[in-house]
Simulated assay, not measured.
Amino acid sequence: MRRPAGFTLIEMLVVIVLIAVAAGLMATGIAQGLHASRERQAVREMVFALRQARSQAVLDNKPALLHFDLPGRWYGAPGQPRRSWPDTVQVRLVTARQLGSAVAFYPDGSSSGGHLLLTRGDRQWRIDIGWLTGDVRWMATP
C-alpha cells in the first residue's frame, strides 16, 4: 500500500527548528561583526584626528594639541567637538610627560611623539606617532 505524498508534522517541526537555530547563529555573527566594525572605525577616527592636528599645526604655523581624557573616554583639539570611543575599548597613551595626556604637533611637522594602544579583549591596535616627522601610523597587533 502506498503512503500519500507530503511531509509529516514531525518533519515540518524539525525543519522549523533548524531554521531558527541557523537564524540565531547568523544574528550572533552579524552582531559581532558590527562591534568589530565600530572598533576599527574608532581607531581610524583617532588616526584621522591626529593627522588633522598635525596638518593644522603646519598650516597655522603654531603648535596644535590633541587632548585625551582617558577616564572620560574622549579626545579632541581645542575649539573642536569631542570625539569618543566605544566602552568596550581600553586606551593607553604614552607621550611626553610634560604634556600630560595630550599629543603635541609643531609647525615644522614634528611632534611630541609616542603611541596609543587600544585594546578590546584579545584584539589590539597600536597607533604610532613619530616625533621627528609627526607621521601617524596604525596597525593591528597580534
Rank of each mutant, 00 (worst) to 15 (best):
A64C: 08
R40Q: 13
Q32P: 04
P81M: 01
P63W: 10
R38N: 15
I129G: 00
G113R: 03
S37L: 14
M26W: 14
Q98N: 11
L18Q: 08
F105P: 02
Q56N: 09
A104R: 08
F48I: 08
L50Q: 01
R2F: 03
D128T: 04
F48A: 14
Y106I: 08
L116P: 10
L65Y: 00
G134F: 04
Q41R: 10
T28L: 15
V89E: 06
G24M: 00
L34K: 03
R51S: 01
T28K: 12
G29S: 05
W85Y: 13
R3H: 11
R120N: 02
S111M: 04
N61E: 15
L65I: 09
M26N: 14
V89I: 10
T8M: 05
R83C: 04
A96N: 06
I129N: 05
V17K: 04
L70R: 08
V43N: 00
P81D: 07
L66V: 10
H35S: 15
R137C: 10
R82K: 11
V14H: 05
V43P: 05
H67I: 14
L70Q: 03
A64G: 02
A20E: 03
P4W: 14
D135E: 15
G29T: 10
A102I: 02
V103L: 13
R92S: 14
W138L: 04
T141D: 09
W131S: 05
G100K: 08
Q98K: 08
D60S: 13
T141R: 12
L25T: 13
W131D: 04
Q124K: 15
Q124A: 12
R40V: 07
T88F: 09
P78Q: 05
V136H: 00
R73M: 11
W74S: 14
L66Y: 03
D122Q: 13
E39C: 09
P78V: 08
H115S: 08
M26K: 10
W85S: 07
G6S: 06
A53E: 02
M1R: 13
H35N: 15
I10W: 09
